[in-house]
Design a binder for these strands. Structure first.
Lengths: 239, 239
DNA sequence: CCTTGTTGCGCACACTGTACGCATAACTGA
DNA sequence: TCAGTTATGCGTACAGTGTGCGCAACAAGG
């Protein structure tokens, strides 16, 4: 045996990697990314930190995921998969769509980071979970009496409304979380500033000085009001 | 005269700054940021690049703006200011709201970067332009016959719908721009993949294989359909 | 045995936001 | 005219980012 001198890293010092499992898989990466996003928010997601959580180097992730953007697309699809689409109980399509919209809102609000990503991630509708969701919702609208083409339009309308409220709520909840206060506390603390700032605008001023209600339930009620109006408008098309 | 030796930078080499104008102001910074955002997109906006455009160092901007986030808040308010709210011609509140919504959509689509920011920027509704916009729209709904509280709900509903479609459209347009193709070209190129991917979903498949129409006008028509439904639903409340 | 392909990783590069402190200019008052 | 105060721009530096590149370790197939 010749004396091959590797300066320090000899066969004996080398860690003798075991490969019991693939140790890294796209699914695992996405799952861990979701956890990181949910607990620490969008700006905390870095490839290095994610890699560290998986006991891996940052660049190792790139074997399973082309991009950070692609990773986010996968995460978004995963979240869409959590939206619940009920079967059509009792022929009441409005109730079914309401449950679905309400579920979508809950999911968006639970994963507030998604709002900062929805505007960047294109082609999300090609993800498997998004497709399954859309397919089932199209079924709901078809059963309600819409033709396929109009069912598509109706679906887009409802989803646009849900995404719009979700985005707005998520923005609010994110700044709220950064402030470290509870929602009610933060609202109360903001009131004087709002009252002062709205002085030149009589209608806004009246709203700002108006009766204070529980902030979180007010958000929920507002969502329901708008959703009911959207569904009213759609129902009217069924004659 | 003693020989004070400053190594190279003597009085003569020093540039003798002239200050004809303040050279940097918050308004100027925001305006330049808007231009940069519109022409090169959100990820192209860095403090250094923005400073360079203004013939200033990156850190100089921080004398006029606390944060990059704050800068974005100012930019968002500026964009909201471009939304047009018509006066109530001919007592037709639906026409007025439609013009306003259509204008909002146009603005969001023109500044696609806003979609990636709306979900992060909190308290945007305290911006002066946003307030003016909301005040005037509340007036529209009040004139239509809504009480102030319900006018607020109606406004939120319409805006949620517009923001939802805007976000979705902006995401699409952004990836489109990155691809470098025209919209129709890109749609045609994507068709086969979409047809293939939708195979397990009969309704989506039917939609994907269906008659191809002009992509951009289809977007516009879809927006109008949903907006009309929302307004139908609101109109029904006026009895 | 050798080849070939897949996976993880260390290094390096160009770039980010922004805290800190200094230098300059404009304004103030005497 | 001169000193003192305040506002503004900027150079440097730090800790972080995404990710291209090429090497090392392994698995499978011939």
């Amino acid at each position: 045996m010749a004396a091959d001198e590797q300066p320090v890293a000899s066969v004996w010092t080398r860690p003798q990697r075991r490969r019991e499992q693939p140790a890294l898989s796209r699914a695992q990466i996405v799952a861990e990314a979701l956890d990181l996003l949910d607990t620490e928010g969008i700006e905390a997601l870095s490839m290095r930190k994610l890699g560290a959580r998986l006991d891996a180097g940052a660049t190792s992730l790139y074997r399973h995921v082309a991009n950070k953007d692609e990773l986010l697309e996968l995460a978004v699809d995963e979240v869409y998969g959590q939206i619940e689409v009920p079967d059509l109980w009792g022929r009441d399509w409005r109730a079914a769509v309401t449950v679905c919209a309400e579920s979508a809102r809950a999911v968006l609000v639970k994963h507030t980071w998604i709002a900062s990503v929805l505007g960047q991630v294109g082609l999300s509708y090609l993800g498997p979970n998004v497709m399954r969701l859309n397919e089932r919702m199209l079924g709901l609208f078809e059963a309600a009496g819409f033709g396929l083409a109009e069912a598509d339009l109706a679906l887009s309308t409802v989803m646009a409304y849900v995404i719009g409220t979700g985005t707005t709520e998520a923005a609010w909840l994110t700044t709220l979380a950064r402030s470290g206060h509870t929602e009610q506390d933060w609202v109360d603390r903001l009131r004087p500033a709002a009252i002062e700032a709205t002085k030149p605008y009589p209608r806004l001023h009246k709203l700002a000085t108006g009766a204070e209600t529980d902030a979180a339930t007010a958000r929920g009620d507002g969502f329901r009001y708008g959703l009911d109006r959207v569904l009213d408008g759609l129902a009217a098309r069924l004659g």
